[in-house]
Nucleic acid binder design. Structure first.
Lengths: 237, 237
DNA sequence: ACAAAAGTGTTGTTCCTACACCCATGA
DNA sequence: TCATGGGTGTAGGAACAACACTTTTGT
């Protein structure tokens, strides 16, 4: 069966950048391509959009098909459409990015992918197509976004300690943050809910917190701005 | 002539949201459609992407073809791809938004458009397709962006007074700002260059300023954050 | 008792906010 | 001399930045 149109049409794909937080590193999920072009190269999970599905649905479908990751927060990043970005012809790709708690999302390669694995953001292999450029755009967006929107919580378990939250910012932004000031500021925002304490840790147990999205949305309506930019040490470059 | 593919493909279009600043209002440029569907309805300028042109190039081409506006700062906004957003079939559209100084960009309808005109953001006519949704996304993005990135300058002439700049923020954000505090803050950023004074105004002539992009980029590299959010009156809702 | 991480007190400084006032120009 | 915006001084309070210290747990 074939499909005929009066004018030529680019093909349409989606690609996913999945960020995950490991103890000390920001990581990203890649697949090893099982088909040409760029066979055996590492690439972003993604593929062609079906005619009867929305763009975000396509991204979620390909993500699950190729890596087994599902039920994640995803957000449109950017659409890449350079004329020569794909050797197969004119292919326009809509990139999505997601943040997941790495430990809660088991990964297993399948379908078109030979393999799927997490890579540290500073230890990326050579990537297929223009995926390096897409990745750079995603990292920049993540860094820009994390300071004025509380999206970082997606990278942590639903219950987390303030130290974990602080480390998240330190890892994502690559800076050091003063413990005292971080705590004062984040707690004064009043968007975290204090829960029980940790158990069985070989030191004073920390309180666990969870993000109170309802409260955050109420603040949003009042024009409140999430902002942790100021906390960064002045001498970090 | 016809084009045949093994799998079906959505058609690909671009749409442009052009914001312009009039004395007291934020306006947007619309065209009146000369062809079906939605003939005679107001819509965003836009159209199909050619196979041999980039996405941004397509947006700029359609913008000039349909409205005569050229040489503008444009930026990708979002890609809209609901299955049923266009009655002609599956059409995915990449939306771009631009900021222009309304007075420096003459508008004249042509090609597929019956007419082109500026509309106040609060006096929009009924729009074709899902263009209302696109417009809302664009306004939200503009408001969000203007407070932490110095893009607002694009809406003004290259030389402007501080009062004009302040009014820009007041209009875009729909808030009142204290004159004294606005000036202190914006000048302390040290990204404006003071020029000569105004002439022939029936009051004390103001100094003209221009945005120093080079200096701004230097600050960016050092991790400096543009931020005018704090200036907004606390009691504005 | 010690290691390790949690959590708090405090101080000097900078920045924010709100208000009031003076200045320069054309009509 | 008046109307109209342009431009500045300042004081009280809030927020920030930096540092040192105390607390609580398991071993």
């Amino acid at each position: 069966m074939a499909y005929t149109y009066k004018y030529p049409r680019p093909a349409l794909t989606v690609d996913c950048i999945i960020f995950g937080l490991d103890k000390k590193d920001l990581k990203v999920l890649l697949i090893r391509r099982g088909i040409e072009p760029y066979i055996k190269k590492w690439a972003l999970p993604g593929g062609f959009v079906n005619m009867d599905e929305g763009l975000e649905a396509a991204a979620l479908r390909k993500l699950e098909d190729e890596t087994g990751v599902k039920d994640v927060f995803i957000e449109q990043l950017f659409t890449f459409g350079s004329v020569d970005r794909d050797p197969r012809g004119r292919i326009v790709s809509i990139a999505y990015f997601a943040l997941v708690n790495l430990n809660e999302h088991p990964v297993h390669a399948s379908a078109d992918a030979d393999d799927a694995a997490w890579f540290g953001i500073d230890e990326l292999p050579e990537l297929a197509f223009d995926h390096k450029e897409i990745m750079e755009t995603a990292i920049k967006r993540l860094r820009g976004k994390v300071v004025y929107q509380p999206i970082g919580f997606e990278l942590l378990p639903s219950k987390f300690t303030l130290t974990q939250l602080q480390q998240l910012y330190e890892i994502v932004l690559g800076v050091e943050i003063n413990k005292r000031n971080f705590r004062t500021k984040i707690l004064k925002m009043d968007i975290l809910e204090q829960l029980e304490r940790q158990e069985n840790v070989p030191h004073r147990p920390a309180y666990l917190y969870q993000f109170n999205e309802k409260k955050y949305n109420e603040f949003l309506d009042k024009g409140f701005l999430f902002e942790i930019g100021g906390i960064i040490k002045k001498d970090s470059k």
